[in-house]
């Protein structure tokens, strides 16, 4: 555990909590892509199946349970409790276009052709693109609520911090996992355009809206 890894995890946790609180407090999931949230629930489920097979640490177990629990709570709020506020018309990204190729890639490029390892690899690849339905939705509507942009900022920051964590681990522990690193780089790059808008607009007190 190093400072980048810890702050990365906390940033990820902050993103998840911000989104849950936003939906709960406003009693609305307007502007939120339910499809991205389904993908994140799928990511956590397929990655954390090792909760059943191995114990790593108390921290590891608790965080995994929180992430999974929050992911399903978010999906529940969007598709059940506050379904009436869900903007399905603008959330039109086709999930199979992500899940099928990612599943194929996970079967082809992995560390070990075993059930849990392929699911882990699938979750890593899927996480790197899971935000696309949300970004697609924002590009369709042309705007995002400020609180939604805070959510996206912390979600992107988390993977960027993990990149520093991997650099740290490579130098000080000789550890590197090429699958996680490549997927993490892709994931972070997908947020770059958003980071730019966040810094130039949202942090200056303006609402995030895209030029028509």
């Amino acid at each position: 555990m190093n400072i980048f890894r810890l702050t990365g995890d906390l940033s990820h946790l902050a993103a998840i909590i911000i989104l849950l609180l936003k939906i709960w407090k406003t009693r609305s999931c307007a502007g939120i892509s339910g499809k991205s949230q389904i993908l994140f629930a799928l990511v956590f489920t397929t990655r954390y199946l090792d909760l059943l097979t191995s114990f790593i640490s108390f921290y590891n177990t608790i965080m995994k349970l929180i992430y999974i629990g929050c992911a399903y709570a978010t999906v529940y709020l969007i598709y059940m409790k506050f379904k009436a506020t869900y903007d399905g018309n603008h959330d039109s990204f086709r999930l199979e276009f992500l899940v099928v190729p990612v599943g194929g890639l996970a079967c082809l490029v992995n560390h070990d052709f075993s059930f849990l390892e392929i699911l882990w690899t699938f979750s890593i690849y899927l996480e790197s693109v899971a935000i696309l339905p949300q970004l697609f939705m924002i590009s369709k509507t042309g705007e995002a609520e400020t609180i939604t942009t805070h959510y996206l900022f912390f979600l992107g920051l988390y993977r960027a911090l993990y990149l520093f964590n991997w650099i740290w681990r490579f130098y000080f522990e000789g550890f590197f996992d090429m699958i996680a690193i490549v997927a993490g780089v892709v994931q972070t790059i997908l947020y770059c355009d958003f980071f730019y808008l966040y810094v130039t607009k949202v942090l200056k007190g303006k609402k995030l809206s895209l030029p028509a």
């Binding site: 090792d50 191995s54 790593i56 882990w120 996992d177 699958i179």
Partner: peptide, 10 residues
């Protein structure tokens, strides 16, 4: 080393 044995990251 086998990365699949060291899944301590989240």
């Amino acid at each position: 080393d086998n990365p699949s044995q060291e899944k301590d990251e989240l």
